[in-house]
């Protein structure tokens, strides 16, 4: 099981960074540029690990990125990679959807803890925006998850995944899927919900004071975490995957939609994004819940 978990983390790291490289590449093509190489995000991350760290804000500051990393890894370990396979399952037989939803909140909380101790005003502004937005993101996603749990009479991700053999949840429960998908776009941190690290407003946002190795940890955790979120969406709504190839194909389609939406839409303000998330996707998901 240890090797299994390690393989899950390694795969998430690699795919997360590859997808981030793809994100930069696709955005560049949308802008009419060539863009960096696919492996550019790896280079950035390795270079940041090789950089020195010269700031000191006390241990709480350093604990921040580490808690974020733990949040990302534990979320990942409770989501099975493949449908009905004995490999790449991690700890998923011991946990369920409720636990995963709970662990997903650990990342912004760890972030808030690290930022709170360095006192940088842009970091504090960024994390305040992030936690405000989180309210809007959680509502539709929770409602969709509750809908799926009711429909399947189970909170187990594996059961929800295997029950989709006749038809994907995305098609049997389309309203739940739309609500959860808009929320998922926000979870991915792309436009129009990228209020946290909005560069024109709060510089780097929460990452402003992170440097060197700790910034590298923060980048790696965001790569792993975004892959975990893709995985969760595929498992819940697209019927999981029988093989790694199918998994990559399905996650890539989801990711591509998120990237293209992000490239087309301008950024909401914090208030607008919360208002939109509470009105539109929450409403859609609630209507979907009625049909369940």
């Amino acid at each position: 099981m240890f090797l299994d978990s390690l393989a899950m983390i390694a795969l998430a790291y690699i795919f997360g960074f590859l997808y981030y490289g793809l994100y930069r590449n696709i955005s560049a093509r949308v802008h009419g540029r060539f863009g960096p190489s696919l492996a550019q995000s790896f280079f950035d991350s390795i270079k940041l690990f090789l950089k020195e760290n010269s700031t000191n804000f006390g241990w709480m500051f350093y604990a921040g990125p580490i808690i974020m990393m733990i949040g990302a890894i534990t979320t990942l370990l409770f989501i099975p990679y493949l449908n009905g396979s004995e490999h790449l399952v991690g700890l998923s037989q011991y946990g369920n959807l409720i636990l995963v939803l709970y662990l997903m909140v650990l990342e912004p909380l760890g972030n808030a803890m690290g930022i709170g101790s360095n006192g940088n005003p842009f970091g504090v502004m960024g994390i305040t925006r992030g936690l405000t937005r989180l309210i809007g993101l959680e509502l539709p996603f929770y409602i969709a998850a509750i809908g799926l749990m009711i429909a399947n009479h189970s909170a187990d991700i594996g059961v929800i995944m295997t029950n989709q053999s006749e038809g994907y949840n995305a098609f049997t429960h389309p309203l739940l899927f739309i609500g959860a998908f808009i929320s998922f776009l926000g979870f991915m941190g792309k436009s129009p919900f990228d209020v946290v690290g909005a560069p024109q407003e709060v510089y780097s946002g929460p990452a402003t004071e992170f440097s060197g190795k700790f910034f590298a940890i923060a980048l790696s955790q965001s790569a792993i975490f975004s892959f975990a979120k893709l995985l969760l969406m595929v498992n819940l709504f697209l019927g999981g995957a029988q093989s790694l190839v199918e998994l990559v194909a399905k996650t890539f389609v989801l990711f591509l939609v998120a990237v293209l939406v992000g490239n087309v839409y301008a950024r909401f303000t914090t208030a607008q994004s919360v208002e939109f998330l509470v009105r539109v996707p929450t409403g859609i998901a609630l209507v979907g819940l009625l049909f369940v």
Partner: peptide
């Protein structure tokens, strides 16, 4: 000019 293809990106803070 697209300098990003050389791996050059702008950052907002001297820390990074």
């Amino acid at each position: 000019y697209d300098i990003e293809r050389l791996g050059v990106v702008g950052v907002a803070t001297p820390r990074q």
